[in-house]
Design a protein around this nucleic acid. Structure first.
Length: 515
DNA sequence: AGCCTTTGACCAGCG
DNA sequence: TCGCTGGTCAAAGGC
């Protein structure tokens, strides 16, 4: 939506804006700002922190040179846009991170991303995107998990919470350690390791979202995709923190494949678990249909929550291998999670379940809402929304849990990269990905997911799938230590808490995207 | 016996 | 109006 337009505008940035119109730029910038803000304002009203906005504004004013201005003010945004459009996403300097990280954590050594102290997960969270998300609702995507029931979680809170909770929640780990991809993983790792395939996305219910709808659509991550809704956050955590993207361990991979999770880990995961098996996400699902969807490589399964009167449905696409490539949740549960005991054993084994259970709140959000029935998809969701899915509701695809709240987020991590898409209508999605993905996702990125979706759901899916496939494939193996953050929206992650000024752009050989 | 999955058919929306 | 596509229904069968 607006985001897209904005993006477009931003895109213009990539190219040199015609010099002529400073005013034009400024205007664009302003618009962008507005847009950026908008999402928040629109959705939640909470938008970014004033500071950010204000800053941007100042910068804008400052920018006498269009290009610089843009960058200065929105470098991040631009990048994001670029990312969306397919341009490279800004990269985080992992080196610095590593160093710091290393000092902190020996394990983190992995070439993968680690978030340096300077960059705290918090900052990331704080990033506009996250903020939005946070504002919106806690979601894995946002990085804010619904630890807080309401979801009004601020990055700061999150960060703090995360840290504190990290122990409890994988999610925390994610942030905290987060983004540190360890090759080894170990431990938890299974999540990641796997390689993930993709996870799913979860969507936040926008309605709930105040503003942010972050939906992440499917992300394919080699490493892991995590889609989570509120609850799913847990999954995310696990994935992130735990999973070393690369790793792969075949077993892990498989597990991951299940990725989703944590649940899967034990259970079957994703497939079975999250998506497939209902229970894995803590809820009981009944499959009521399966169909090959055009544009989708894999058949889509339709599930309904077996709880009486619970309107929640989910669509799960699984690869032949059984890995879930995409999960879309529709609606919010209007009931607490059933005891794990039930079938799949999900409960018992599933961390998710536990988590969820533990965090009823998470679940509830939606529920509270009573659920919104609408699909919250970021991916397709809104966009599609027009079509199949309702706007109001977000369609979220989450690999993990659809829990209550419609929040959905997808985290995809590819081998080394993690994509986080949050798709709100607005876009607050950010993706961390390897370059490879960038391409695809760039366009797609969170953007693609949500936004792209606007254009084509199918495409977004395809992209996802493709990327996914790619990820799983060779790409995975090849990881670069670097982390690319793609932000779909202006607001996004670029804002890593730091302000960036673009001081140059160059086409690098071998890289279609200007650097 | 109950629940779930499978699968073909039906329906609705959209171009 | 037709065709395409996605979502849902419901019978049959399995666990």
């Amino acid at each position: 939506m607006a985001g897209i337009d904005e993006n477009l505008a931003l895109n213009g940035d990539w190219g040199l804006p015609s010099p002529s119109p400073r005013s034009l730029f400024s205007r664009l910038l302003e618009e962008d700002n507005n847009n950026v803000i908008r999402p928040n304002s629109e959705h939640s009203g909470s938008g970014r922190t004033e500071g950010q906005d204000g800053d941007s504004g100042t910068q804008l004013s400052d920018t006498s040179y269009p290009t610089e201005n843009k960058w200065s003010s929105r470098g991040g945004l631009v990048d994001r846009i670029a990312a969306r459009t397919g341009f490279n996403a800004p990269r985080l300097n992992t080196e610095s991170i590593r160093s710091t990280e290393l000092s902190l954590n020996s394990e983190i050594q992995s070439p993968y991303l680690t978030i340096p102290p300077g960059l705290s997960p918090t900052t990331l969270l704080d990033s506009p995107v996250f903020l939005a998300n946070s504002l919106a609702q806690p979601s894995p995507t946002t990085g804010k998990f619904p630890f807080v029931s309401n979801g009004n979680i601020r990055s700061t809170e999150l960060s703090s919470d995360v840290q504190e909770k990290s122990k409890h929640n994988g999610f925390n780990d994610i942030y905290a350690s987060s983004f540190a991809f360890k090759p080894t993983a170990d431990s938890g790792p299974s999540f990641y390791q796997g390689a993930g395939r993709n996870m799913n996305t979860t969507t936040l219910s926008q309605h709930s979202l105040h503003g942010f709808e972050a939906s992440v659509q499917s992300q394919r991550v080699d490493a892991v995709n995590v889609q989570t809704e509120n609850k799913s956050s847990l999954h995310l955590k696990a994935e992130f923190s735990d999973s070393p993207p690369q790793k792969d361990n075949s077993t892990q991979l498989e597990e991951q494949a299940d990725e989703e999770g944590e649940q899967r880990v034990n259970g079957d995961s994703l497939v079975a678990g999250v998506g497939g098996t209902p229970s894995e996400d803590g809820y009981n699902w009944r499959k009521y249909g399966q169909k090959q969807v055009k544009g989708s490589e894999y058949p889509r399964s339709y599930y309904k929550c077996t709880h009486s009167n619970c309107p929640v449905k989910k669509k799960v696409e699984r690869s032949h291998e059984g890995h879930i490539t995409e999960i879309i949740y529709k609606g919010a549960h209007n009931h607490p999670k059933p005891p794990p005991s039930r079938r799949s054993g999900i409960g018992s084994t599933n961390p998710h379940a536990d988590m969820q259970v533990d965090n009823p709140e998470h679940g509830e959000p939606q529920g509270g809402g009573g659920g919104d029935l609408g699909w919250a998809n970021v991916q397709k969701g809104n966009i599609a929304g027009a079509g199949n899915w309702k706007h109001d509701n977000l369609e979220a695809t989450s690999a993990v849990n659809p829990g209550y709240g419609n929040q959905s987020t997808n985290l995809q991590t590819q081998n080394g990269t993690t994509h986080i898409d949050s798709g709100d209508a607005v876009d607050r999605s950010s993706t961390f990905s390897n370059e490879e993905e960038e391409d695809d996702q760039g366009t797609h990125g969170s953007v693609s997911l949500g936004y792209d979706a606007e254009g084509d759901e199918s495409e977004s899916k395809r992209r996802k799938l493709e990327s996914y496939a790619e990820m799983s494939g060779a790409t995975r193996a090849i990881r670069e230590p670097r982390v690319v953050v793609q932000t779909t929206s202006e607001v996004d992650i670029l804002d890593d808490g730091y302000r960036w000024r673009k001081y140059g752009q160059k086409v690098v050989k071998g890289n279609p995207n200007p650097r």
